[in-house]
Each structure stands twice: as structure tokens, then as C-alpha cells.
Amino acid sequence: MDLIRINNVKKQYKNGVTAINNLNLSIKKGDFVFIIGGSGSGKSTLIKMLYREEKPTLGEIIVGGVNVAKLRNRKVYVLRRKLGIVFQDYRLLPKQNVYENVAFALEIIGAKKEEIRRKTLKAIEMVGLKSKIHNYPDQLSGGEQQRVAIARAIVNNPKLLICDEPTGNLDPERSKEIMDILEAINKEMGTTIIMATHDKDIVNRMKKRVVALKDGRLVKDVEKGGYCSEAI
């Protein structure tokens, strides 16, 4: 069973720009997929449609059995609780410390205090930040902040982890740390990971499925692929 099915999707913004054109794609459970493409290729739009920040103009997107296109604004949280999202700019709550930031994802679904404590500590341990549990985001380095964001994204045991350029603001060494964590999550927890990136080295090193977009169209989709410069 596919975790994500994208059928004949077209996305046209109100200003007339067509970001995605006639896209078909399916992603299996447990996959690790890179989405690559240059600026304006539509990869950000695709990622945004997966967590319903944008709605497709035509076609349907099914994520974990939820038809994203038909999801009403008030009900978006139903989808978002099934997935974890990691952004380039971390998006941590600035006034909450590491523990609170991670625990937040569990508190909003009304989990019991004991359960929150156990799962939060486990997620923080997984990203290796146990010693900074009481620090606030502005007291952490970029790499550490991103690890907090990953802990928050996986604390709920989501089936799908969506990463939008998670290493975009980090140096190669920190990027590698982040990728190691993501790979561990993919292997140990069986979480499906979709990652948009334009970091050539990471894609070439990881040998995962690569989906390349250009001008809103799918131009390449290979298992264990590398970064293709012709797509850019």
C-alpha cells in the first residue's frame, strides 16, 4: 500500500504561475525519497501540498488515507498529526525550552503527562540533545536547533516525515549529523521520509530514491540514484 499517492496534480497560483503540472507520483511506506530541483522547479510547492499549506488546483493527493485536496481548513490538524515536518528555518517556539518544544506536539493531542515525559525524553535522546533539555532555542547552534525540530517531528511516531531543505542553513559537518539522524529514524522506526534538497553531496552519498522536478514536471525518478545536474 502506498503511503502517498499523487494523481494528475496541477498547481496554479493566483498570480497565474503554474508551479506543478500534471504530476503523478507514489511513495511506499518506509521509503526514503529525495526531491531535487532548482529554484522554481516546484519542489517547495510539492512539499507544501503534502502538508496542506497549499491546495492543488487539480488532481488529488492522498497522504496516509487522507485526501489533502479536500481537507477543510478547520480540519487540517487531522493530517498534520499524522506527519512530522522539518523546515529549513527550524520553526521552534522561541519562548519554550527544548523539552517544551518537543513535548508541545504531544500536549496538543491531549496525551497523558507520563506518556509525554517518556516519549519526549526518548525523542530528545534520539537526536542526542539530552544535555541541553532546559535550553531555549536562542541558546542553541543551528544544528542543535534543527535536531530539536526533528525530535519534535518524530515524537508522535508519525508514519511520514517531511523535510523541506533541512540542511539548507547548515555547514557540511552539521548536515551530515542531521542526515545520520534522519537515516537512523528511517531504519529504526520505519518512518517514511521525504526530503527536498539541493545539496548534491548528500544526495550522492546516501544512494536513495531520487525524484527530480523541472519547471513543475517530473523529469527523473530513480531508485538509489544520484544528483543529476541536467535537471537543474
Binding site: R80, R81, R91, I109
Partner: peptide, 16 residues
């Protein structure tokens, strides 16, 4: 504003 949008992204319902 940002804080609110993060809450939404993490899966908080509008009411909460």
C-alpha cells in the same frame, strides 16, 4: 503570528 503558524504546523487544532 509565527508562533501561531508553528502551532498549526505541529498539528494543533484551531480551538486549542
Amino acid at each position: 503570528k509565527r508562533e501561531i503558524s508553528i502551532m498549526r504546523l505541529v498539528g494543533a487544532s484551531n480551538v486549542s
